[in-house]
């Protein structure tokens, strides 16, 4: 799974680079607009170490943010799965919270928490959690009648069992959503670093933008892409292991 993911990313990235080069040489654009392959290579050599560390820094925050957001989504999704007043209230609150754009909330976070780790973490978690929440709500609100009916008529149904049945029956979907949300966590962290941070690859991209250096941005995109590809592949593999352990298949 891992080599395939990385290979697929490399194909996409190099197709993207080829597109840029076609544009550059087709329109005779200067290295200022689109850097030449040699320039990109030199930037890679010069910035590789610093940008790799920055990407790892971002990835660490993104992983923690994702864990928090998945935890939040599971708690809210399970609590809000019932069609009771409380369930509906939790859903409305969760949906409304998501309606506020993060750039509008960021200054408040910045004032309250400063421009450090916590702000980045919170922004990452906020951007990542909603799609996971939607899936969890969808999965948890939908009864698996074939199985649940037996427990209901025998009076043995408890909420823990209900959650377990619905999770088990939708494990593949849940794994896919969680793996997919890794991209959002990374994107969220980078947005956070753009707005309020002194570290991470988003912060490095911001500096590169100030210096109009597209070469640095291309290197940053490469490192972000390959890191996400590896992380997603690891999450998918973890999902397979969990499923195998749970189902015995």
């Amino acid at each position: 799974m891992l080599p395939r993911r990385v290979f697929q990313f490399l194909i996409i990235y190099f197709l993207f680079l080829c597109g840029l080069m076609a544009l550059k040489y087709g329109l005779a654009l200067s290295d200022y607009v689109i850097p030449a392959p040699v320039g990109i290579y030199h930037t890679l050599i010069a910035e590789y170490r610093q940008y790799s560390l920055a990407t790892m820094n971002t990835m660490t925050v993104a992983v923690i943010g994702q864990v928090i957001s998945v935890g939040m989504a599971l708690v809210i999704g399970i609590a809000g799965r019932q069609s009771t007043w409380l369930g509906s209230f939790i859903k409305v609150a969760a949906f409304n919270f998501q309606a506020y754009p993060i750039v509008a909330l960021a200054p408040i976070l910045f004032i309250l928490l400063g421009d450090g780790f916590l702000t980045r973490l919170l922004i990452a978690a906020m951007i990542c959690y909603f799609p996971v929440l939607l899936s969890v709500l969808g999965i948890m609100s939908k009864p698996v009648d074939d199985i649940e009916h037996f427990y209901r008529v025998t009076g043995r149904m408890r909420w823990q069992l209900e959650v377990k049945i619905r999770t088990f029956e939708n494990l593949t979907q849940l794994t896919t959503v969680i793996a997919g949300s890794a991209t959002l966590a990374m994107a969220g962290t980078i947005v956070g670093e753009f707005i309020a941070a002194n570290a991470g690859i988003g912060y490095s991209i911001r500096i590169a933008l100030y210096q109009s250096d597209l070469g640095k941005i291309l290197i940053a995109l490469f490192l972000i892409g390959i890191t996400i590809a590896v992380y997603q592949a690891l999450l998918e593999s973890l999902g397979v292991v969990i499923k195998r352990a749970w189902t015995g298949r």
């Binding site: 200067s30 290295d31 200022y32 607009v33 850097p35 320039g39 210096q211 109009s212």
Partner: peptide, 12 residues
């Protein structure tokens, strides 16, 4: 600074 960077990279 934008102009100097751009000229150094061949922008006309």
């Amino acid at each position: 600074d934008q102009v100097l960077r751009a000229r150094a990279k061949g922008a006309p």
